[in-house]
């Protein structure tokens, strides 16, 4: 009796499953599911995120930083001062991008290249890994060239980073950014040329279009520089991304904000800034 019951239940279950079985033959080779869209922008706040521009997409960024909050009401708490960085980033192919930029008050021109080595896979490889190389050259005036001690290579500095990011869930992404900044010329006595720091960053989506971002760079060997904490909001409105942030660094390029920050949050060295980015599809 039990056996008959078993057979009948088998028959019934096979009938119930008939519909799903129809599609099950399509699922024989389950495809690798990559995890996309770890961050909204190519930067977390100031530092690079693991996101690259897609192939053929040109991104124009206007970055703006005001003065420190503790500069008093005479300076409208820093809003009287401002500096700008303009940059263009272009997606060369699906796994690499190239960018150039210029910072106004620093008079530094920079170029960077990001290469994605691998992507996070659902129930597979845990990280998206991107390497970032950047070079910076400080502009000079003709009067400086005439000086005897002028050497072109002294104007250069470099940043090398390996970025590891993981989308923990659909709202939260965390990133580790070990960084080396190399200066061809350092300004202070006993200052090291290679500065190591370790960055941690992340984003938490608050709504479909707004996310809270944070990043922290811890100085590993040059303790004269402050650790850098930056907080920001990304607001996406379709073609534009607006980023509003607060940081204890006023600079926008890696060697300056990571390894040349002196102010501390607790002393009121808090700088307000914003980025506006717009993408253009140049090539399909």
């Amino acid at each position: 009796m039990i056996r008959i019951f078993f057979v009948i239940s088998c028959l019934l279950s096979s009938l119930v499953n008939a519909q799903e079985n129809l599609l099950s033959i399509l699922d024989e080779d389950e495809k690798t599911v990559y995890i996309y869209y770890l961050f909204k922008g190519t930067k977390i706040v100031n530092s690079q995120s693991v996101e690259l521009n897609s192939k053929g997409v040109l991104q124009f960024n206007i970055q703006h930083r005001f003065g420190p909050l503790n500069s008093g009401k005479y300076n409208l708490y820093g809003l009287d001062f401002s500096q700008v960085r303009l940059s263009l980033d272009y997606g060369i192919n699906e796994w690499s991008s190239f960018g150039i930029g210029r910072s106004s008050s620093l008079k530094i021109i920079d170029a960077n290249s990001k290469i994605r080595l691998c992507r996070q896979v659902k129930a597979g490889f845990p990280f998206t890994i991107v390497i970032n190389f950047a070079a910076y050259i400080k502009q000079w005036q003709s009067s400086e060239v005439e000086k005897e001690d002028f050497i072109l290579t002294n104007q250069l500095s470099y940043t090398n980073q390996v970025l590891f990011a993981r989308k923990i869930n659909r709202n939260l992404t965390l990133q580790f950014s070990p960084t080396v900044v190399h200066y061809n010329l350092v300004e202070k006595l006993n200052e090291v040329n290679d500065k190591y720091s370790f960055g941690i960053g992340g984003r938490q989506k608050l709504t479909q279009r707004i996310s809270l971002n944070a990043e922290y760079f811890y100085q590993l060997n040059d303790k004269r520089n402050s650790n850098v904490l930056s907080l920001g909001f990304d607001i996406e409105t379709g073609g534009h991304v607006f980023q509003l942030h607060l940081s204890n660094s006023s600079d926008m390029i890696d060697p300056k904000f990571i390894t040349d920050t002196n102010g501390e949050w607790l002393n009121g060295y808090i700088y307000f800034g914003f980025n506006i980015s717009r993408v253009f599809t140049i090539h399909n």
């Binding site: 995890i35 869209y37 897609s54 997409v57 479909q208 379709g238 073609g239």
Partner: peptide, 17 residues
């Protein structure tokens, strides 16, 4: 045709994750 459309389609509209 545009990467941004694809991102919005997956992230905001169809929630492909």
């Amino acid at each position: 045709p545009k990467a941004l459309m694809q991102e919005h389609f997956n992230e905001n509209y169809l929630e492909s994750d």
